[in-house]
Simulated scan of single mutants.
Amino acid sequence: MQETLYVISKSLALFCIAWLSVRLIGKRNITQVKPFNFLSYIILAVVVALMSLDLISLSSGFVVLITWVALPIGLDYLAIKSQAIHQFINGKETVLIKHGKIMEENLIQVRMTGEDLLAELRSKGIFNLAEVEFAIMESNGNINAYLKSDKKPMTAHDLGKKVAPQAEPQTVIMDGNILAEPLSSLGLNQEWLKTELDKMGISLENVFLCQVDSSGELFLDLFNDAVEIPQPKVKELLYANLEKIQADLLAFSLQTENKNAKGMYVKNYQKLDRLLNKLRPYLLN
């Protein structure tokens, strides 16, 4: 029993050391880990396992750990300082498609077939090779593609339209439980959230997930998928109310014979028209 507790406690301590070592080497997605760093992770895992099983001494194991933590950190530092060292350690990008034409020699160089290339493009949402102007394999193995000018999606900038800046939506309900911190970060409270749910006729217990965007609109996913969720129209209703006020001002100006009153109505109509022009990208897009 005592030996078992010793092994468990030592394994926990070594786990913490291994976790700290990995954090020191760098915080990256496993698909973006550099080859040398990936090798370091494997060696660290093997050494920690051997130390845990007493197959190597702790002193020897710590020397290996320190070495394989220091090496990636040192090489990363040198790679930052020198482009030549960076390319030597991490490799360099490879052009796979140029001016719409596949570079077969480069495909062979990175050991890819045409099917591999098509599969990678499909994973990026590109199913027609004729749409691709340029594609490159980065040093971490990721493939990025640039579409031809006439195949790129149209944006608001292309149309010369202004759009409202969007902040990250906050998840405020998860598994029927209200998350207070994200809600307060939006300047809202639980009473507001419950009122909005009541307007939709939805109980809190039936909400699997709820997000609130920067304009205060809700996205809901319910446990009961048979329930139809009314679509929020907060911004559209606000814009419609402002338009109604503007129409009322115009009507009042046409109905009155008083020049002062007519001038006041027309002046406020014009002010509201300028305001609507500014708000239109925020409320209708």
Rank of each mutant, 00 (worst) to 15 (best):
Q2T: 07
L5T: 03
S11L: 10
C16G: 11
W19V: 04
L20S: 04
V22K: 04
V22Y: 15
V22R: 06
G26F: 07
G26S: 00
K27F: 06
R28Q: 06
R28V: 00
R28M: 01
I30Y: 15
I30H: 12
T31G: 05
V33K: 12
P35T: 00
N37H: 07
V46L: 02
V48C: 11
V48R: 06
M51P: 02
S52R: 05
S52Q: 00
S57W: 06
S57G: 15
S57E: 02
L58K: 01
G61H: 03
F62M: 15
V64K: 11
L65M: 14
I66A: 13
A70P: 00
A70K: 08
L71R: 00
D76S: 03
Y77A: 09
L78R: 00
A79P: 00
I85D: 02
I89F: 12
N90M: 11
G91Q: 07
K101V: 11
M103V: 13
E104P: 04
E105W: 07
E105Y: 10
R111A: 13
L117T: 02
L118M: 15
L118G: 12
A119D: 12
R122D: 10
V132A: 11
A135N: 05
A135G: 09
I136P: 02
N140Q: 03
N144L: 08
N144T: 11
Y146N: 05
Y146M: 08
K148H: 12
D150M: 08
K151A: 14
P153M: 15
P153Q: 12
T155Q: 11
A156H: 10
A156I: 05
K161M: 14
A164I: 03
P165L: 01
P165S: 03
A167V: 00
A167R: 02
E168T: 12
E168P: 05
D175G: 01
D175N: 09
G176M: 04
N177V: 12
N177Q: 13
I178G: 02
A180D: 11
S185C: 01
S185N: 06
N189S: 00
N189V: 02
Q190F: 03
K199Q: 01
K199L: 07
K199V: 04
S203A: 09
S203N: 08
N206K: 11
N206H: 04
N206S: 10
V207K: 05
V207I: 10
F208H: 03
Q211H: 02
Q211L: 12
V212G: 02
D213I: 04
D213Y: 01
L218F: 04
F219W: 04
F219L: 13
L220R: 06
D221C: 10
L222V: 07
A226N: 11
E228M: 05
E228R: 01
E228A: 06
I229Q: 00
V234M: 12
K235V: 07
K235S: 12
K235E: 14
L237N: 13
A240R: 15
N241V: 05
L242N: 13
L242M: 09
E243P: 04
E243Q: 10
K244D: 13
A247F: 12
A247L: 13
D248Y: 08
L249N: 05
L249K: 01
L250Y: 13
F252Y: 14
S253N: 03
S253E: 07
K259V: 08
Y265S: 10
N268Q: 09
Q270T: 13
K271P: 00
K271W: 06
D273H: 15
R274P: 00
L275D: 01
L276A: 02
L276Q: 08
L283K: 06
